[in-house]
Amino acid sequence: MEQLIEIKNLRVDFTLRSGTVRAVRDISLTINRGERLGIVGESGAGKSVLGFSIINLISKPGKITGGKIIFRGNDISKYSYEQMRKIRGNRIAMIFQDPMMTLNPVLTIGTQMKETILAHMKVSNKEAEKICLEKLRKVYIPSPEKRLSQYPHEFSGGMRQRIVIAISLLTNPNLIIADEPTTALDVTIQAEIMDLLLELCETENMGLILITHDLAVVSEVTQRIAVLYAGKVVELGSSKQIITNPQHPYTQGLIKALPQMAEGAKRLNQIPGMMPSLRDMPDGCPFAPRCAALLERCKHEIPTLKELESGTQVACFMREGVE
């Protein structure tokens, strides 16, 4: 399969007065053309920072301090703002949790969409409008001709998010990064938007990085899942393997904590403790203080990802002896 993007040993730090927050600590991932990857993990694990860093949207006090992001053969992590702007919105699009981060409240939908098209393509105004209508139809906005002259506040939350998706489609991107695109919406609207993203990935052969903490949603939409914990990928594998046969004690804990996994018991299975602060990490495995399967070496050494027979990669000393 053709590789779309490769993230190699990426590091992102936030330098604060109170110390350095190592939000992304040596993450490597690849995504192939048309592939859908889910990123899950605890709040504060670094999911959004990872997503933002791919399109270089990290701003002070944050900085990419190491690693490479290879997109279509070029290391885009070193790109200038101007070079990046061409890629962003053209080849790689981002969808945020809040659609109003993308939409301008004082411009009509039509104006905003046309601006994007004209910035990236040499077409006439008429042709631009045709593209707008075509994309709005793709995201199932009814009577798009009328909708073009409306402002964002005249749409419901779900429709706004669909318009953001339509805007991200304008330039036929190769990759969409969606950061919690449905967290603020209802289950019925969430289901619609996920259906839509899935359909578009398949028909347009687009890659998708879906960031969420909802395991059920990623398991329905993505082919592979990366589990993040304290700025590191602790498990990476096919969605089916991760959900049915999780290897890392943290992934196992996450799945067991779901109400549908309580197996008739009233009490839910909780993971004890909290994720350590990214400011002062323990010496060994970041999950060690909460881990039930702790070994002596977990307290001093940091495990790295190792591939198991099933194809799943896991960073856990418990799993190393097994092979």
């Binding site: 419901s156 779900g158 429709m159 289950v187 019925t188 969430q190 289901a191 619609e192 996920m194 259906d195 899935l198 909802d214 395991l215 059920a216 949603v217 398991s219 329905e220 939409v221 969605s239 089916k240 959900i243 049915t244 799945i255 779901l258 549908q260």
Partner: peptide
């Protein structure tokens, strides 16, 4: 019925939920 059909299921397949037409 529409609400419940939209609940994502762990390891489930996408689609198959009842689609509501019309605006909220």
């Amino acid at each position: 019925q529409a609400l419940l059909s939209a609940i994502p299921t762990l390891g489930g397949k996408k689609g198959g939920h009842i689609k509501l037409s019309g605006d909220v």
